[in-house]
Write a protein that binds this DNA or RNA. Structure first.
Length: 979
RNA sequence: ACCCGGGUGGCGGAACUGGUAGACGCGCAGGACUUAAAAUCCUGUUUCCCGAAACGGAAGUACGGGUUCAAUUCCCGUCCCGGGUACCA
C-alpha cells in the first residue's frame, strides 16, 4: 500500500465537509480561542504561494488549540471593496461586483485545496449589503458621537448638546484649534474666537449649531487635499501617481482641496498609546505605532511679524529660542500670501507651484534643499533686535504642528543644511558643543548667547522658557501629535455609500431603518463633476441629495472580526452575547504592511464601540504575529541580440553570460565567433559584432527545474521562441530541429517581489496536485520562520514529501503491507516520542513552525532507523502531526482502528520521566576555543569538574605545563579553562 | 529623508536566556539495489593549510571597532536588502 495523497486528501476533505467538522458553536463548555487571519482582498490574479503562508500558520495553531481542548473560532472572508476591481471595471467594462464574485470563487477553490479548518458558514464579504448595512450603522454611531476629554471616552452627541445648553463649551474646547466661530455681534472686540456661552449657543442658528457640532463628531466632514489629475478628470490614489504624473497616461497631478469625511482618531491618540501596553504585539510593531502617533511635548510660540500678523510655531525645543536664525513655514500655510513682499511675490509663487506638484513623500525624501524667502521678518520675543527672515520650504508640512517651525541651525541637522545652502548666518548658542561643521542636537550643552538663559543647561532651560512664554502671554505649552485625523472618503464607486443626506449644506444621517443604503448600479465608472465620485453622475442619487463620496477600503476591515462572531444577525452588527463570549481575537496573523493603517483604525473603532457600550473590550487583538513576505525567485535566460538578424532567437547559458561582458569589444568578438562556429545561421561582420547585446529576460519559473531550463517547454512558451537555439552550459547546442544536445541550459537567478509580470509566481494548486496539500502545508512552514521574509524555491519541496512518504512507510510496507503492530514500546522509543512531544508543543506554541517540521523529520528518521512500527508510539505521533498534515494523519488514524476524527483527539501529554539524563557531554574550551569533550555527571561539583579537567590529556596538551588562571564551569552548558 | 525589520555554507535555514556555529532539508559528489529507469537506502559535503589517511591546525555568522573567561547573540559606527510613510490592500 503506497501513499496516495490525492485520493486520501479528496476523501477526507469530502468527509469533513459532510460531517461539518469545522462548524463552530458560540455555545461551548470548552474555553474559547479566536484565531484570525488578516482580511484578504480577492485580487484578480488569485493566490500565489506567498498568500497562504499566514493562513497555514494560523490553521496549524487553530488545530493545535483544538487538540488542546479549546473551542476554536477560525473564520475567513473577503475585504471585497477596493480600487483594483474598479480599475478593472474602467478598463474592461465589467461590473466590480461581477469580477469580485469571480475572484472570490477562484480564491475559495484555491483555499479549499489546502485543507484549512475555516468555518465557512461564518464567511463575510464587505461588499454584501447584509454586511455593509452594519458598516454604515457603525459609521452613524461615530457620526452621532463626540469625544469627551473630561471622561476620556466617546459619548452620544446628545450629551454634548446638553452640556452646551448648560455651560457653553468652556470645558469642552473645539478639538481643531484653528476653528473660528462666526463673529459675535454683542461683544465683537473681546470675544474669544473658539469659545461660546450657553446663551450664545442657544442663539446660534441651525446652520451654525450644526457646523459647530461637526467640529466634535467622531466622523466628520471637512476639507482635505487630494491628488487631482485634470487630464483624467479624476482623483488618484497615491499608488497611481508616479513622479508627479498619473501612472496611466502620464498626466500632471496637483493637490486639490475637496470636501472629505474624516474620523477623529486624534482624540484617541493617548488611548491608542496606552492600549499598546496591554497587548502582545512585537516591540517593532508597537514602536511603529508609537512613532506614527508621534506624541511630543513642546510649546506653541507666537512670533510677531513685521508684516503685521502673528506667526505661531510649534517647537519641542523652546530652550533654543535664542538660536533661531530663520523661520520656515509650509508653502501652503495660509499666511504665505499675506506676508510675501512684492519683491518676492514671483519667486514665492513659482516655488509654490513646484511644491503643489510634489507628493508628501517626495517632499520628505528630497535630499536637495530648496526653499524661498518670503521677504517677511519675524521678531524674536526675547530679543526684539533680532529680525528673523521667514522662508517657505517643502520640508515643512502644513499638517504637522502649526505648519511653521523656528529653525535653529546649530542644533538641528536639517536647519543647519538649509542655512548653509542659503548662506544664512548661524548663531551659536551652545559654545564648544557646536563645531561649525555639523549641527549638534544635544540637550546637555550649557546655553550661551541666550540672554536670560545664559549658563543654563538646555534640558533645564526648556521648563524655564515655557514658564516665561506663558507669563508673557506669547504662547503655551502644548502636546502635539504627528498623527492626523483619518481621511475617510473616496471619490470612487466601489465602496460603502455614506448614509448621509445633505440639506442646505448640512449633513444629516439617514434613519437606521433605512439601512443599508445600497450601492446603486452605474453605467459608467467615470468621475462626476468637480472631482466628485461616479455616484454624482446618477440623477436619482443626486436628486435625493445623498452623499456622493464612498467609504475607503479600511471601513469594512475595521470591524470584521466582530461580525465573524455573529455573522447572520439581522438585528445587530454583533450581539453582545456573542462578543462577550468570543472577546478579543486571541491570535491575529498578518503582514507588517498593515502596521499603521488597518491596525490603528480597527483599534480605534473597537475603542469607540466599547465606549458606546456595544462591546465589552477595547482592544481587538490580544496577540499579533507578523508573517513575512514570500519573495519570488526569478529566473533569467540570456538572449543574444544580433544586429544582423533581430528575429533570431539565440540564448546563452549563464556561464557564457558571466564570461562575456556586453561592454567589452573583444569579448563580443569571441562570443560572435563561438556562436558562428556552433550555429551556422548566426552571422556577423566587422561592424555588427560590436553591436551585439545580451538581454536577460524573465522566464517563467514553472518551466525551470531549479536553475535548469526545460528548453522544450521554453520553445512552446511563446510563439517567437519556437525556433530558439540554446548554447548550453557544456558548450553544446540545442537546436529547434533537435539533435546534438547533451548539456543543460542554466538560468540566472534573482530574488524579487512575487508578481505575474516577473513570471516568478507559483500557484499553490500546481504544487498541491503534484505533492498533496499536506506536503505543501509543511513545506511552506519548513521554508523558515513565519515572521521572516524569504524567497520561494519549489525545489526543496521534495524533501518534505519524502518525509511524509517515510512516515507512511512506518505503517505500511510496499511489499508486506501493514507493518504497524501492538508490541510494547521500549524506553528508548518512548524517549524519542516524548522528546518530540516536548519540542513540537514548545515550537508550535511559539510559532516556530519551521523547527517543528525539522523535529518531525528527526523523529521519523529515528523511528525508521530503529524500525519502530508500534502503535503505542505512532498513534501519539499522528496526533502531534495532525495540525501540520491533517489528511495523512486522519487516514492513518483510521487505519489504526479509530473511528472518530483525529481533529478531536487530545494532544499527547509529555512525561518528563522519559527525558531525564544523568550525564552530559560537556564541550571543554581552552581560552574560549573548544578543544575537547568530556562526559560529566550533571550533578558534578566545581571541584570534581576541575579535577577531571586537569587530568584530561587534551587539556594537558593545551596547558603546556602552565596552571590555569580560572576554570569556568556552567552547569549543563560548558566548561572554559582560562590560561 | 524618516520609522521598523533583516544580512549565517552552493541554497532555505538551525543555534530559544551570552556558552560545542552550520540541526533539518535542498543541491552536489560517490556508492548500493536494478537489464535500465524511477523509487529507496548508505557515505561525504563551511573555507583554507598540513597530510596517503586517521588526525591535527587556522579562519569564519555583511563590514569596521568595542564589552566579556566566552559574542551569530550585547554596545557604537558603516554598507546592502525588504516593509511603511497617511487614497494599493
Amino acid at each position: 500500500m503506497e501513499y496516495k495523497f490525492t485520493d486520501i486528501e479528496k476523501k477526507w476533505q469530502d468527509q469533513w465537509k459532510n460531517d461539518a467538522v469545522y462548524k463552530v458553536s458560540n455555545d461551548s463548555a470548552r474555553p474559547k480561542y479566536y484565531v484570525l487571519d488578516m482580511f484578504p482582498y480577492p485580487s484578480g490574479t488569485g493566490l500565489h504561494v506567498g498568500h497562504p503562508l499566514g493562513y497555514i500558520a494560523s490553521d496549524i495553531y487553530a488545530r493545535f488549540k483544538r487538540l488542546k481542548g479549546f473551542n476554536v473560532l477560525h473564520p475567513m472572508g473577503y475585504d471585497a471593496f477596493g480600487l483594483p476591481a474598479e480599475q478593472y471595471a474602467i478598463d474592461h467594462g465589467i461590473h466590480p461586483a461581477v469580477s469580485t464574485e469571480q475572484n472570490i470563487k477562484n480564491f475559495r477553490a484555491q483555499l479549499d485545496k489546502i485543507g484549512f479548518c475555516f468555518d465557512w458558514d461564518r464567511q463575510v464579504k464587505t461588499s454584501d449589503p447584509h454586511y455593509y448595512k452594519w458598516t454604515q450603522w457603525i459609521f452613524l454611531q461615530l457620526f452621532h458621537s463626540w469625544y469627551n476629554r473630561q471622561t476620556q471616552k466617546a459619548e452620544p452627541l446628545t450629551n454634548l448638546v446638553e452640556i452646551f445648553e448648560k455651560d457653553g463649551n468652556k470645558n469642552q474646547p473645539i478639538p481643531n484649534t484653528q476653528f473660528q466661530l462666526p463673529a459675535d455681534e454683542k461683544k465683537p472686540l473681546h470675544a474669544d474666537s473658539s469659545y461660546f456661552s450657553a446663551d450664545r449657543w442657544k442663539a446660534f442658528d441651525e446652520s451654525t449649531k450644526q457646523s459647530i457640532l461637526m467640529e466634535y463628531r467622531l466622523a466628520y466632514c471637512g476639507y482635505g487635499e487630494v491628488n487631482w489629475c485634470e487630464g483624467l478628470g479624476t482623483v488618484l490614489a497615491n499608488d497611481e501617481v508616479i513622479n508627479g504624473v498619473s501612472e496611466r497616461g502620464g498626466y500632471p497631478v496637483v493637490k486639490k482641496k475637496l470636501r472629505q469625511w474624516y474620523l477623529r482618531i486624534t482624540e484617541y491618540a493617548d488611548r491608542l498609546l496606552e492600549g499598546l501596553d496591554r497587548i502582545d504585539f512585537s516591540e517593532a510593531m508597537k514602536e511603529m505605532q508609537t512613532n506614527w502617533i508621534g506624541k511630543s511635548y513642546g510649546a506653541e510660540v507666537n512670533f510677531k511679524l513685521d508684516a503685521g500678523p502673528v506667526l505661531k510655531v510649534y517647537t519641542t525645543r523652546p530652550d533654543t529660542i535664542f538660536g533661531v536664525d530663520f523661520m520656515v513655514i509650509a508653502p501652503e500655510h495660509e499666511l504665505v500670501e499675506k506676508i510675501t513682499t512684492a519683491a518676492q511675490k514671483n519667486a514665492v509663487e513659482e516655488y509654490i507651484a513646484y511644491v503643489k506638484s510634489r507628493s508628501e513623500r517626495e517632499r520628505m525624501a528630497e535630499k536637495k534643499i530648496s526653499g524661498c524667502f518670503t521677504g517677511a521678518y519675524a521678531i524674536n520675543p526675547f530679543d526684539e533686535q533680532k529680525k528673523i527672515p521667514v522662508w517657505i520650504s517643502e520640508y515643512v508640512l502644513a499638517g504637522y504642528g502649526t505648519g511653521a517651525i523656528m529653525a535653529v541651525p546649530c542644533g538641528d541637522e536639517r536647519d543647519f543644511k538649509f542655512a548653509k545652502h542659503f548662506n544664512i548666518p548661524i548663531t551659536n548658542i551652545i559654545g564648544k558643543y557646536y563645531n561649525g561643521e555639523e549641527a549638534n542636537p544635544t540637550k546637555d550643552a550649557i546655553l550661551d548667547n541666550s540672554g536670560f538663559l545664559n549658563g543654563t543647561v538646555m534640558r533645564d532651560a526648556i521648563g524655564i522658557v515655557n514658564k516665561k512664554i506663558e507669563e508673557l502671554g506669547i504662547g503655551e505649552r502644548k502636546v502635539n501629535y504627528k498623527m492626523r485625523d483619518a481621511a475617510f472618503s473616496r471619490q470612487r464607486y466601489w465602496g460603502e455609500p455614506f448614509p448621509i443626506v445633505w440639506k442646505n449644506g448640512i449633513a444629516y444621517s439617514l434613519n437606521e431603518k433605512d439601512l443599508p443604503l445600497e450601492l446603486p448600479h452605474v453605467d459608467s465608472y467615470k468621475p462626476g463633476p468637480e472631482g466628485e465620485g461616479p455616484l454624482a453622475n446618477i440623477p436619482s442619487w443626486v436628486a435625493k441629495e445623498l452623499e456622493t463620496n464612498t467609504m475607503p477600503g479600511y471601513a469594512g476591515s475595521s470591524w470584521y472580526f466582530l461580525r465573524y462572531m455573529d455573522p447572520h444577525n439581522e438585528k445587530e452588527f454583533c450581539s453582545r452575547k456573542a462578543s462577550d463570549y468570543w472577546g478579543q481575537v486571541d491570535l491575529y496573523i498578518g503582514g507588517t504592511e498593515h502596521a499603521v493603517g488597518h491596525l490603528l483604525y480597527s483599534r480605534m473603532w473597537t475603542k469607540a464601540l466599547y465606549d458606546l457600550g456595544y462591546i465589552g473590550h477595547d482592544e481587538p487583538y490580544k496577540k499579533l504575529v507578523n508573517q513575512g513576505m514570500i519573495q519570488g525567485s526569478s529566473r533569467f535566460v540570456y538572449r543574444v541580440i544580433n544586429p544582423l538578424n533581430n528575429a533570431q532567437q539565440i540564448f546563452i547559458s549563464k556561464k557564457y553570460f558571466d564570461k562575456y561582458s556586453p561592454n567589452n569589444v573583444s569579448d563580443l568578438l569571441d562570443l560572435a565567433k563561438l556562436l558562428h562556429e556552433k550555429i551556422t545561421s548566426f552571422l556577423f561582420d566587422d561592424e555588427s559584432f560590436g553591436l551585439i547585446k545580451i538581454n536577460p529576460i524573465h522566464v517563467d519559473v514553472n518551466i525551470v527545474n531549479g536553475i535548469e531550463l526545460d528548453v522544450e517547454a521554453f520553445r512552446k512558451w511563446k510563439p517567437e521562441y519556437v525556433n530558439a537555439y540554446f548554447l548550453l552550459e557544456d558548450g553544446s547546442i540545442s537546436s529547434p530541429t533537435g539533435g546534438g544536445r547533451e548539456g543543460d541550459y542554466i538560468c540566472g537567478t534573482e530574488v524579487e517581489k512575487m508578481s505575474k509580470s516577473k513570471f516568478n509566481t507559483v500557484n499553490p494548486n500546481d504544487l498541491v496536485s503534484r505533492y498533496g496539500a499536506d506536503t505543501f502545508r509543511m513545506y511552506e512552514m519548513f521554508l523558515g520562520p513565519v515572521e521572516q521574509s524569504k524567497p520561494w524555491d519549489t525545489k526543496g519541496i521534495e524533501g518534505v514529501h519524502r518525509f511524509l512518504k517515510k512516515l507512511w512507510r512506518l505503517f505500511y510496507d510496499e511489499l508486506k503491507g501493514k507493518i504497524w503492530n501492538d508490541a510494547k514500546a521500549t524506553d528508548g522509543e518512548l524517549k524519542i516520542l516524548h522528546k518530540t512531544i516536548k519540542k513540537i508543543e514548545e515550537d508550535t506554541e511559539r510559532f516556530s513552525f519551521n523547527t517543528a517540521v525539522s523535529a518531525f523529520m528527526i523523529a521519523v528518521n529515528e523511528f525508521n532507523d530503529i524500525k519502530c512500527n508500534k502503535k503505542e508510539i505512532l498513534q501519539p505521533l499522528l496526533i502531534l502531526l495532525t495540525p501540520y498534515a491533517p489528511h495523512i494523519c486522519e487516514e492513518l488514524w483510521h487505519e489504526l482502528g479509530n473511528s472518530s476524527t483525529i481533529l478531536d483527539a487530545s494532544f499527547p501529554k509529555l512525561e518528563e520521566k522519559y527525558l531525564v539524563e544523568s550525564t552530559k557531554n560537556y564541550p571543554v574550551a581552552i581560552n574560549g576555543k573548544t578543544r575537547t569533550e568530556l562526559n560529566i555527571a550533571l550533578d558534578a561539583t566545581q571541584q570534581q569538574v576541575e579535577e577531571m579537567i586537569l587530568g584530561d590529556d587534551v587539556v594537558k596538551k593545551w596547558l603546556e605545563g602552565k596552571s590555569p588562571k580560572k576554570i569556568i564551569y556552567v552547569k549543563n552548558k560548558m566548561i572554559n579553562v582560562v590560561v
